[in-house]
Computed example of a mutant assay.
Amino acid sequence: MPLHAFDAALSNPAPRPDLTGLRRGVAEFVFFGIKEARACLFAVVIFAAMVLVPREGVLGLPRYDVLLLVAVLAQWAMLATGLETRDELKAITLFHVVGFALEAFKVSPAIGSWSYPDPAYTKVLGVPLFSGFMYAAVGSYVIQAWRLLDVRVRHHPPYWLATLVAVLIYANFFTHHFIGDYRWYIAAAALGVYARTTVSFRPLDRERRMPMLLAFVLIGFFIWLAENFSTLMGVWAYPDQLGAWSTVHVGKWSSWSLLVVMTFTIVAHLKHIKERIHVPD
């Protein structure tokens, strides 16, 4: 089945009034899982490449360069097949920019938060260029899930306020090395800003709702799991993982959840997504 036809079948299932109780709960859970997996298509390609590409590279091409080639081809395929629009690509490109700037700062000798141990032709300031696609994968997931789950947002904060919180989140990733870590103050601000915000979605044929903050935390958790997988594969390493691999500190979960807030704020400025976001007067 062509992917567009598969997406159409997922997005427009026939009404199932016969499903009740536990049977409905199971059916909605299964459909939700399938839609979530489909929304992660770009991320799945990237992580599959991490597993399949040997650490020594392919045909003399270093691993990071092969991963970059895979990511570029995957991004091109998403655009060429219409799975992503040009406007969505602009937002995803912004993720590349903010991601690379953060990476270059974090891997610099003065900071050394983590490192990319393998050589590559496409390393700039110690950062392999494929790393930007990992940030883009988060944005791609949000965009794809928005469409597949027919997402709508109620009581979204004013865009200027949401943008201010997103800027503070991003700035803290840099400034906490010099003036202290204020993530919990910023998290408290985000809690207040998004306290009334709910997200509605359709796992199957009925609308369900959940607090937007819970969505941010859940997505952050799964990104934290993906980060554990990536470090296990040796794609990058934290200082305490250089001798032997260990679980990424659970505190990173909060960082990723805040990054999801920032990611959603960028995506929320897309015209076709704004149409499904309610901002109270």
Rank of each mutant, 00 (worst) to 15 (best):
H156G: 02
P158M: 12
S254A: 15
W245Y: 15
W256E: 04
R206Y: 03
T197S: 10
Y170E: 06
V142M: 15
V142C: 09
L164C: 01
Y238V: 09
L242W: 08
P239E: 11
Y170F: 13
I223S: 02
F201H: 03
S131D: 12
Q241W: 04
H155R: 14
W146R: 12
D240S: 11
W160C: 09
Y182Q: 15
P203G: 12
G132C: 03
R183Q: 07
S254R: 10
V193T: 08
R152Y: 02
R209N: 08
W256F: 15
T265D: 10
Y194R: 05
W236S: 01
M233T: 07
G243N: 15
V167W: 09
G180P: 09
F178Y: 14
D205V: 05
R196P: 00
A171L: 12
G192T: 08
A136V: 11
V193Q: 03
V151F: 13
F133I: 04
S254D: 10
G139A: 09
M134I: 11
H156C: 07
A190E: 10
T197F: 01
P157C: 04
G251D: 07
A188S: 04
A187R: 09
Y135R: 06
F173S: 05
L232V: 06
L161H: 01
L214A: 14
L148A: 06
E207I: 00
T263E: 04
F264T: 03
P158Y: 07
V199Q: 15
N228F: 14
R209Q: 12
A162R: 05
